[in-house]
Amino acid sequence: MNSIHASMNSEAVMREVTDIISSKLSDVGLMFRIFSRTKSEESLNKKLKSDSEYGINKKIQDIIGIRVVLYFNDDIDTVRHIISTEFKERENDVSIDKNKNDEFKATRFNIVYELNENLTKTLNRNDCKHLIDNTFELQIRTIFSEGWHEVEHDLRYKCKNDWLKLDNESRRLNGVYATLETSEWTMIKIFDEISYAHYLNKEWSAMLRQKFRLRFTNDTLPEEIKTIFDSDNLLGKSFFRLDRTELIIDMNKRGFFFPLSLQNLIFFANITKIKDERINILTPDIMVEAMT
């Protein structure tokens, strides 16, 4: 019978993958938490016993599991895009539920990624190559849904007999999830409305903070940039109308590595999108050269 013995190799790979993902998401200022685990020896061998196909026609793909938990649900696709520039998706092993218009329920957003060559060498041992795939599983959730999933998994999914003939209570628990999902979208709408109010009042730093919702190292614009915005409302409008997701993805694509201050965000957006000469004069040459 196939069996797997515990190894430190998977722990080392898990830490490196976690560091890579965390670094990439932090570089663009996304608000997130990241969790990781490797399957225990007991869990791995239990999985092997559950399916005789392991080691013959399929391998265990989730010996390493990474979970990214986001503050905002409009960042889910952005995070997937960023991680997919670092690791190759296994297209046939993507589990993303499609929501129906007339129902609320927990949705999976699980993706299996291939490890690069170096990480594969670290992971694989001669006695388990036929059992363990060179992959890790990524789950993406939001903070609101994370808490619900944990409760639902531990107290309903793992205790199915406790819920027999209690359809009304089960439906009410799903209703809690519906409320949380609605609250997530409402929260983003509130931030958008706050940003617009600050735009109308020419409160440029507040406008940008609330619009982009990122972890800024410095969240106040210098007076020289404020003065330019105050003198040209159309320029302020151009920055207000920037597509947040598009800008974050572009920052990742161009390898943005500067401290993420409001000022540097303005400089980057101006280099790549707005192209105002007054802002360009203030932009450090090193950023112009690196981001162009």
Results as ranks from 00 to 15, higher is better:
105 K>S: 10
184 E>N: 09
197 A>P: 01
126 N>W: 13
73 N>C: 09
130 H>M: 06
126 N>E: 15
188 I>Q: 01
198 H>T: 00
159 C>L: 15
141 R>F: 11
114 E>C: 11
181 E>Y: 10
75 D>A: 06
135 T>W: 07
177 Y>K: 14
68 V>G: 00
57 N>S: 01
59 K>V: 00
63 I>N: 06
180 L>P: 01
67 R>S: 02
185 W>H: 12
201 N>S: 14
184 E>I: 04
201 N>P: 07
144 F>M: 13
92 N>V: 13
118 N>T: 00
194 I>G: 03
74 D>M: 11
61 Q>H: 10
152 E>R: 01
76 I>D: 02
148 W>D: 03
166 L>P: 05
198 H>Y: 14
61 Q>F: 05
201 N>G: 13
124 N>R: 09
97 D>Y: 15
161 N>F: 15
83 I>A: 02
183 S>P: 02
130 H>I: 02
126 N>A: 15
143 I>K: 05
173 L>G: 09
196 Y>E: 11
91 E>C: 12
67 R>T: 03
152 E>Q: 00
182 T>H: 03
172 R>F: 10
160 K>N: 02
169 E>G: 10
97 D>H: 15
69 V>P: 01
138 L>C: 08
165 K>P: 01
177 Y>S: 14
158 K>F: 12
175 G>W: 13
73 N>P: 08
86 E>H: 15
140 I>N: 06
90 R>Q: 05
192 D>V: 03
68 V>A: 03
139 Q>T: 11
187 M>P: 05
125 R>P: 05
150 E>P: 13
199 Y>A: 04
123 L>E: 02
90 R>V: 09
165 K>E: 12
78 T>S: 02
109 F>P: 01
186 T>Y: 14
104 F>H: 08
134 N>K: 06
98 K>L: 09
127 D>S: 10
94 V>C: 09
194 I>C: 02
189 K>N: 15
149 H>W: 08
191 F>Q: 01
99 N>W: 07
177 Y>I: 12
120 T>S: 13
156 R>P: 00
201 N>C: 12
86 E>W: 04
149 H>P: 04
148 W>C: 03
195 S>A: 15
118 N>A: 00
132 I>F: 01
155 L>A: 03
143 I>D: 01
119 L>G: 06
166 L>N: 14
148 W>T: 01
106 A>M: 14
124 N>A: 07
204 W>Q: 07
123 L>D: 00
132 I>K: 02
106 A>S: 13
72 F>T: 03
